[in-house]
Amino acid sequence: MHVPTPEDFRALTDWGLVERPFAAIDDYSAEREHRRTENDRHQRRRREQERNASAEFVADSQAYYRSMDRPIDRTKWSYLKRRKAWFQPPVGWNRFAAPGTSRVLDLGCGDGDQTQRVADFVAGQWLSAGYDGFPLEIVGVDLSESRVENARRHTRSPHEKITLRFETGDTVAGLDYGDDFFDHTLVMGLFEVLGDDPLEAVLDELARLTAQGIYVRDILDAYPGLTPRPDLSARLADRGFDTVERHKLFEEPFVATGTHDPLDVWPMNVHQVLFAAATDPPSPEDRY
């Protein structure tokens, strides 16, 4: 990926996400998913992604991320923040901006670009409502110290009452927080890189840590080292979280041929996005 130019950023602006942040949901259809097979560019990029999968990542994704050393410059970080917004729409994020929320966890936060989007979304909701807000801490946790450092370097709080904090942590082994410590948790692209046993451990820890709701974005196309989990809603329901909204969407705007992505970053993969709410959330008196 080369350093994005102003023209690359303008191309993303043309996707219209400022006016229509949920555009990807309307863009998807089962018929279009089938038609991806006719898109030569998508097929080429898919073969490249399969061929270029790191042997270390496929063998042990946790060790791969733990040892990662990958600084990112501000321009690429900003581009990817906007680029990922297409396939990580703010489903259920209005709950983060509602009174009564005090802590949000971004599990597997990576470089913090999407953590920044969450903070920006909350601040924007408050601004639109003419509301002064409330103290809100958003915590990003990731295995990679390198990526945590990227997040610390590039993120900025958009509001005086929002605190952004980042730390390294291994959710498979368990995080050092009490039960129901966080009101809401986001999990974007974490489940897909886990084997079945680590996934079960993370789901258990996720349910333990989260009092109100869970946002998930995960791939539905299989690749070396990536496992789709179309049954995530059932797995979350087993742990007391019922899916209230779920969508399938593409990684970029659909086109019959070629791509709308100026940097040709990914294939036209299909993902699921869902928000699941606790069926029996604890009362504030029990938590504080």
Results as ranks from 00 to 15, higher is better:
Ser67Glu: 13
Ser61Cys: 08
Asn52Thr: 11
Gln62Ser: 14
Phe87Thr: 02
Ser78Asn: 05
Lys76Arg: 15
Glu56Asp: 15
Arg95Gln: 10
Arg51His: 13
Ser61Leu: 12
Gly92Tyr: 01
Arg82Gln: 15
Tyr65Ile: 10
Phe96Arg: 06
Arg95Glu: 10
Asn94Tyr: 02
Ala85Ile: 02
Phe57Thr: 12
Gln88Trp: 00
Ser67Thr: 10
Leu80Asn: 08
Ser78Phe: 01
Gln49Pro: 00
Ala59Gly: 11
Pro90Ser: 01
Gln62Ala: 15
Ser78Gln: 13
Ala85Asp: 05
Arg83Cys: 00
Pro71Tyr: 08
Lys81Ser: 13
Asn52Tyr: 07
Tyr64Phe: 15
Ser78Glu: 14
Phe96Cys: 12
Trp77Lys: 03
Ser61Tyr: 11
Ala98Arg: 12
Glu48Gln: 15
Met68Val: 01
Asp60Pro: 08
Gly100Ala: 08
Asp73Val: 06
Glu48Val: 12
Ala53His: 05
Thr75Asn: 02
Pro89Gln: 00
Pro89Lys: 04
Arg74Met: 12
Leu80Arg: 10
Glu56Thr: 07
Arg66His: 09
Ser67Cys: 02
Leu80Gln: 11
Gly100Trp: 05
Asn94Ala: 08
Asp69Ala: 10
Ala63Arg: 11
Val91Ser: 01
Phe57Pro: 09
Phe57Ile: 10
Arg70His: 12
Pro71Val: 04
Asn94Leu: 02
Ala97Ile: 07
Val91Pro: 05
Arg82Ile: 00
Ala53Phe: 00
Trp93Val: 03
Arg70Asp: 08
Met68Leu: 14
Asp60Gly: 09
Gln49Lys: 14
